[in-house]
Computed example of a mutant assay.
Amino acid sequence: MLEPCEGKLSRTVLRGESGSNTADLLDQLIENKQKFISQIMTSKAPVRSCEDVDEAALSYAEVKALATGNPAVKEKMALDVDVAKLKLLKANHMNNQYRLEDDIARNFPQQIAKLTEIIDSYKADIAHYSEHKITDTEQFAMEIGCKVFTEKKEAGAALLAVCKDIKSVDAAMDIGNYQGFNMRIQFDGWSKEFILSVKHEAVSKVHLGADALGNITRINNLLDSYPEKLSEAQQRLETVYEQLANAKEEVGKSFPKEEELNQKLERLSELNALLNMDEREDAEAEVSESDEKEERPARGSIHEKLQIYKEKSQRESETGKETRKRDFGLE
C-alpha cells in the first residue's frame, strides 16, 4: 500500500535527477525568501512600503535548469532577494527624503513659531506674577463671583460651591481673579473632574479636588511652576532647531547603495536573458521533434504492413487495367 507523500514528491523526483545538490538549491530558495519575509513582518527594519517579492518564483525553464544543476538559477534566486531588499531600502530612503523636505518647509517652522509664542507668554506671565504675588500670608485675597475673600478656607469653599452650580459638561465659566490672573472653571466629561484655568498671556490648568484648602495650594503651585514651564519650552525649542539643522544636512543625499543596486539589476537582466534563451532553445527542440514525428512513417504490426502492401498492389493493378483499355481503344 502506497503512503501519501504530502509535498515530498517534487524533492524525491529532483533528487533522482541530480542528487542532493538540487534539494540544497530548493532549501536555499526557501531560506532566502523566509529571511526577507521575516524582515518585513517584524519591526527590526523601518519598513514603510514593500514591493511584490514573488518574483523569485521559478519559471518552467528555471525548474528544468534547477533539475540539471544549472548554477545560473541559484545565482538568480540570490539576486532576486538582494534586489528586492535593495529596492525596499531605496523606497524607504526616498520616503525619508520627502519627510525631511516637508519638515524643513512646514513642520519645523510651525513648531518654532508656536514654541516662541509660548516662551514669550511665559516670560510675560512670570513678570506679571512677580508684580502681583502675595508675599505676606496675612494679605491673602481671592475674588470669586464679584466677592473678595481674605481667608483661604472661605475662598476654597466658594470654589467648591461654584463647581456645584456648573450644570453643563465642558462649558467654561469665568469665576474671578487671583494674584493678577483670571480664573475659569469647567467640568471635564471625560475625566469627570473640575478643571481650573488661570490666564494672563498663557493659559495653564490644574485639576481641582474636594479639599477646600488643598485647591488653593494647587493654584499657588501652578503659578510657582511657570519658571520651570518656561525652561521646558526653551529646551524643546533648542531640540527643534537641532532637528532642523540635522534635516538640512540629510536632505538631498542620494541612496547610499545605488551603485550596488544598479550592478545587481544589470546582472539579473543578464541571467534572465540567459534563462529565456534556454527556454526558447528547448521550445525549438520540441517543435523540431514534433515535425520529425509527423514525417516519420507509422510503425505498426506485420498484419498492418501486409494490408497496406495489398491495398497498394490493388491500386496499381487497377491503374494498369485502365491504361491497357485506353491503349486498345476499349474506352
Rank of each mutant, 00 (worst) to 15 (best):
37 I>R: 08
14 L>I: 04
12 T>V: 02
318 E>S: 09
41 M>S: 10
157 A>Q: 14
44 K>N: 15
22 T>Y: 11
206 V>M: 02
181 F>A: 01
178 Y>D: 12
4 P>K: 09
97 Q>G: 12
136 D>S: 14
25 L>E: 13
186 Q>I: 01
92 N>C: 06
305 K>R: 07
323 T>H: 10
318 E>G: 08
204 S>C: 00
309 Y>F: 04
167 K>Q: 15
142 M>D: 15
72 A>E: 02
41 M>P: 01
315 R>H: 08
317 S>G: 08
141 A>G: 09
299 R>H: 13
228 E>P: 00
166 I>W: 00
209 G>C: 01
101 E>Y: 09
84 A>M: 05
308 I>Y: 02
238 E>S: 11
236 R>S: 14
65 A>E: 00
298 A>F: 01
70 N>T: 04
287 V>C: 05
303 H>V: 09
163 C>A: 13
146 C>K: 09
33 K>W: 02
283 A>D: 07
16 G>I: 01
186 Q>Y: 15
4 P>F: 11
204 S>M: 00
23 A>L: 13
326 R>Y: 15
328 F>N: 12
118 I>W: 08
133 K>T: 11
97 Q>P: 07
133 K>V: 13
329 G>E: 14
13 V>C: 10
304 E>G: 05
269 S>W: 02
123 K>I: 10
112 I>G: 06
223 L>H: 05
29 L>Y: 10
262 N>H: 15
171 A>N: 03
231 S>N: 05
149 F>T: 03
233 A>K: 01
138 E>R: 09
247 A>K: 00
157 A>D: 14
190 W>C: 04
295 E>A: 13
93 H>P: 01
166 I>R: 03
168 S>C: 05
236 R>Y: 11
197 S>N: 00
136 D>P: 05
292 E>R: 05
196 L>H: 00
228 E>W: 10
77 M>T: 02
91 A>N: 13
288 S>F: 03
202 A>W: 00
49 S>V: 02
13 V>Q: 08
43 S>I: 06
188 D>A: 12
74 K>M: 08
91 A>I: 03
251 V>Y: 04
134 I>S: 11
261 L>R: 13
331 E>C: 07
